[in-house]
């Protein structure tokens, strides 16, 4: 396979926006590709996709929670509910990589049981590529592509405590799925380790009393108003096995989306995600000394949020500023 090649970048972007599956798959491969030529093409593509940043499309939803809470089966039920509502859904399913080999087993797709006939669902599995508990560098750029072609982009990832901060910083709406009978989530929430989600779910409510208890413990531990504004965090019971509570969860997710839209917050939030992503990448590459040199975290974030968005362009510009002798690969 040679590098993906559409006639022009504009055609490529149009095909993605039209939901062309082959084009979307190609674009995701391209964004994953670290070769210079690929990066140049990716930058051009993102320029097209991020053009209309004042009117951001889609809803970016993060689903996180401890292993075994039933996130994948819950996601599968949600996908079916969204499809019934006529919404097109893309999923980024993130699994951990092996610290020894760097390889990974990506098995979430199996649990999503997507049909081969439905063109309204697209699943890409991703290894977290060494970002243990967090999200790999590819997640944000890939989300941009998916948002262009789908109504909902779902990022599913394991998180137990402080490490799911990534998903909370990169999504419009974060949904935390707790495991019935485990006190961990309550403890994390009380201790402030758990980033407060927009929606709390106790899945496997078919487990009966155990689930009900966890539900009430979580509700009690939670300050119901979300830190980012007048949003009352709902605590919901679902059972992916019995299919109960799924519609209510879809409603709550939709309601939060409406709220962000009515407040016209989506555009600023999306800029914020990108700024967070850039900051994180630069911090990894150049350490806190590098961030200081760019004016410190606060100033850097403010600066990025005020700029026009083009992910890889911004990234390259900042690297240039740090080390002017670095060859600008995308120029």
């Amino acid at each position: 396979m040679s590098l993906p090649e559409a006639d022009t970048t504009a055609d490529f972007a149009t095909a993605i926006a039209a939901g062309d599956r082959a084009a979307i798959a190609q674009a995701l491969n391209l964004l994953d590709d670290k070769r210079t030529e690929a990066r140049r093409k990716a930058t051009a593509l993102l320029a097209h996709l991020q053009r209309d940043q004042q009117n951001p499309k889609g809803q970016l939803i993060g689903i996180t929670g401890p292993p075994g809470a039933g996130k994948s089966t819950l996601s599968a039920s949600l996908i079916r509910a969204w499809r019934r509502r006529g919404l097109r859904v893309a999923v980024l399913a993130v699994d951990p990589s092996s610290p020894i080999s760097g390889g990974a087993l990506l098995g979430d797709r199996l649990r999503m049981q997507t049909s081969a006939e439905d063109d309204g669902v697209f699943v890409r599995s991703l290894s977290n590529r060494g970002q243990y508990g967090g999200l790999s560098a590819e997640v944000w750029p890939m989300s941009i592509v998916m948002l262009a072609g789908f109504d909902i982009v779902l990022i599913e990832t394991v998180g137990v405590g402080q490490r799911e901060v990534d998903v909370a910083r990169l999504c419009d709406t974060t949904c935390y799925v707790a495991q019935p009978g485990s006190g961990d989530s309550v403890q994390f929430l009380k201790a402030g380790i758990l980033e407060v989600p927009h929606i709390l779910v106790v899945n496997k409510s078919d487990m009966g009393a155990v689930a009900t208890r966890t539900l009430s413990e979580l509700a009690a531990a939670l300050n119901r108003t979300h830190p980012d504004g007048d949003w009352q965090v709902p605590v919901l019971a679902t059972s992916a096995a019995n299919g109960t509570g799924i519609e209510a969860l879809a409603d709550a997710l939709e309601e939060h989306h409406q709220l962000l839209q009515s407040r016209q917050q989506l555009a600023t939030r999306r800029k914020g995600y990108q700024a967070y992503w850039l900051h994180k990448r630069l911090l990894e590459e150049y350490g806190s000394a590098g961030i200081e040199k760019l004016g410190g975290e606060k100033q850097l974030l403010a600066e990025l949020e005020s700029q026009d968005m083009n992910l890889f362009k911004q990234y390259e510009a900042l690297r240039q500023r740090l080390y002017p002798d670095i060859k600008d690969t995308f120029a």
Partner: peptide
């Protein structure tokens, strides 16, 4: 495959050719 460093998308059993 995982131990050899591949990213393995494991699709399991009972799949149609289209899937």
């Amino acid at each position: 495959g995982r131990d050899a460093g591949f990213e393995i998308v494991y699709e399991g059993i009972r799949l149609t050719p289209a899937q």
